[in-house]
């Protein structure tokens, strides 16, 4: 956790939403975005993680990256619970449009409609999209 530890920060708690819209491996955004989520949780902030659009491909199970010689970081999503990141959502419309269902995912998520995700976005203090 670099130079920050959980007990070093006792400032205000804000609502941070991380909006993942990009597929893994083709670009670095998914991997480096996940690193930000883990750090934010270490600050005891109210973190929501949302997978929409191609972001839902980040949590597709059965990722096997040895053939492309890249690090498979999908197991890291399973570590989120250990960081007390419990608000993890995927958008129903994005999954359906890509032929995915809950059974395809590497972690349990709450499936929300686009309208519900829009409502949730409105209540956030900070939204960061990768």
């Amino acid at each position: 956790m670099e130079d920050w530890e959980e007990d070093e920060f006792d400032g205000p708690v804000k609502k941070f939403m991380y909006v993942n819209r990009k597929a893994p491996y083709g670009t670095v955004y998914a991997l480096e975005g996940l690193e930000v989520v883990l750090i934010t949780a270490a600050f005891d902030q109210d973190v929501s993680l949302v997978f929409i659009d191609d972001g839902v491909f980040q949590i597709k199970k059965d990722q096997e990256t040895s053939g492309v010689n890249m690090k498979n970081f999908s197991p890291t999503y399973r570590a989120l619970e250990g960081y007390e990141v419990e608000k993890v959502y995927a958008e129903k419309e994005s999954l359906e449009a890509r032929g995915l269902s809950e059974e395809d995912l590497v972690i349990p998520v709450e499936i929300l409609s686009a309208a519900e995700i829009s409502e949730l976005m409105d209540t956030q203090d900070m939204i960061v999209s990768f």
């Binding site: 750090i39 902030q45 900070m126």
Partner: peptide, 21 residues
């Protein structure tokens, strides 16, 4: 150069966080 925590802290202290990418 510093840690990612500095980004989170900017979000906590700031009224807004604006992303350019």
């Amino acid at each position: 150069i510093s840690g990612l925590g500095q980004l989170v802290e900017a979000g906590i202290i700031g009224d807004r966080l604006v992303t350019f990418g």
